[in-house]
Design a protein around this nucleic acid. Structure first.
Length: 106
DNA sequence: CATTTGACTCTAT
DNA sequence: AATAGAGCCAAAT
């Protein structure tokens, strides 16, 4: 069976409930290697359009923000979707990790 | 096969 | 507080 890191990432991201978010580091940690945070990002970046069930917009960085800057297209998309799910963004344009960070197996 | 790069994170300066 | 550097790994070229 496939043991690609991306597969594990997708498996977790797919299980993120609405109105919740998760960080790259958290995913990597759950997968067993907290240092693979970058690869999580890679997996997300590769998230093909065919991966619709994969809510990549719920995946953010350790700061509760999105890399690339708030001017990035994905930031607006993520924010819009998260807000649609009831997630409230802070004035900084960040998500309150303390409040929305979701961990698998919970 | 070697080099580059990237949606990260942490630590140090 | 902000910036810079290092660590780590996989996919792309």
């Amino acid at each position: 069976m496939s043991a690609s890191f991306a597969d594990g990432v997708y498996a977790i991201v797919r299980q993120i409930p609405p109105g919740c978010v998760i960080t790259y580091g958290a995913i990597a940690r759950v997968l067993g290697d907290p240092r693979k945070a970058r690869q999580v990002g890679w997996a997300m970046a590769l998230t093909p359009a065919a991966s619709e069930p994969i809510p990549a917009h719920r995946v953010i960085n350790a700061r509760g923000d999105i890399p690339g800057g708030h001017a990035s297209r994905r930031y607006r998309l993520h924010r819009k979707r998260l807000e649609a799910e009831g997630v409230v963004f802070m004035a900084d344009g960040r998500v309150d990790l303390e409040r929305y960070l979701w961990l698998p197996s919970s």
